[in-house]
């Protein structure tokens, strides 16, 4: 899952060898596609979904994405984030974590982030979120080996734990 135009379909094509359309504009994928990928000696189903900004769908394409998530309660979710826009990508990732899904976060377009002089402390982010975080460059395939190897490490994380890791007790005040 991830925002529109972060590279989900490129991930899908790389991981499954399928041919889903990839383009450089938001909204290329408007339906889901299923494919198979190898994971530690077994074949695992992978689903490519349209981009979504949040889990409250605003249009038909987002509806498809959210429906796929809900229909596959026992799946691991690869959250693809645009590394140049981490904050808003995290919004969707947190929503998915809150719903109890095991998540792997891919910080895609890592090269663009470097060009833009954006530095992300991956280890610290991993520690706070408690889920694997992998920098990737989907179009050239960098980071994919690591991403695949970490899918099995993904476990559900309690949001309270993340709040605690983030060092925030502020939440006590907000949540009353």
């Amino acid at each position: 899952m991830g925002h529109p135009n972060v590279g989900k379909s490129v991930f899908f094509n790389r991981l499954t060898g399928a041919k889903v359309f990839e383009s450089n504009y938001p909204g290329t994928t408007v339906d889901f596609t299923k494919g198979w990928m190898h994971l530690g000696g077994e074949d695992v189903e992978l689903i490519d979904v349209p981009g979504a900004f949040s889990l409250e769908p605003k249009d038909l394409a987002e509806e498809v994405a959210v429906k796929m998530l809900e229909e596959n309660r026992d799946s691991v979710v690869i959250c693809v984030l645009d590394a140049t826009k981490v904050e808003r990508g995290l919004y969707l990732a947190l929503e998915i974590i809150e719903r109890g899904y095991p998540v792997v976060v891919a910080l895609n377009m890592w090269d663009v982030a470097e060009d833009k002089n954006i530095r992300i402390d991956v280890e610290k982010l991993e520690r706070i979120l408690g889920v694997p975080v992998v920098p990737t460059i989907a179009i050239s395939g960098e980071g994919f080996k690591e991403l695949v190897s970490k899918i099995k490490e993904a476990t559900p994380v309690k949001i309270e734990k993340i709040i605690e890791n983030a060092g925030g007790v502020e939440s006590a005040a907000v949540s009353g």
């Binding site: 904050e87 947190l94 954006i118 992300i120 979120l129 993340i162 060092g167 925030g168 939440s171």
Partner: peptide, 15 residues
């Protein structure tokens, strides 16, 4: 609350 949390996470990790 979610944005608040994200804010605190990104302050520590993104530069």
């Amino acid at each position: 609350e979610r944005w608040n949390l994200i804010d605190r996470i990104s302050k520590q990790t993104v530069e």
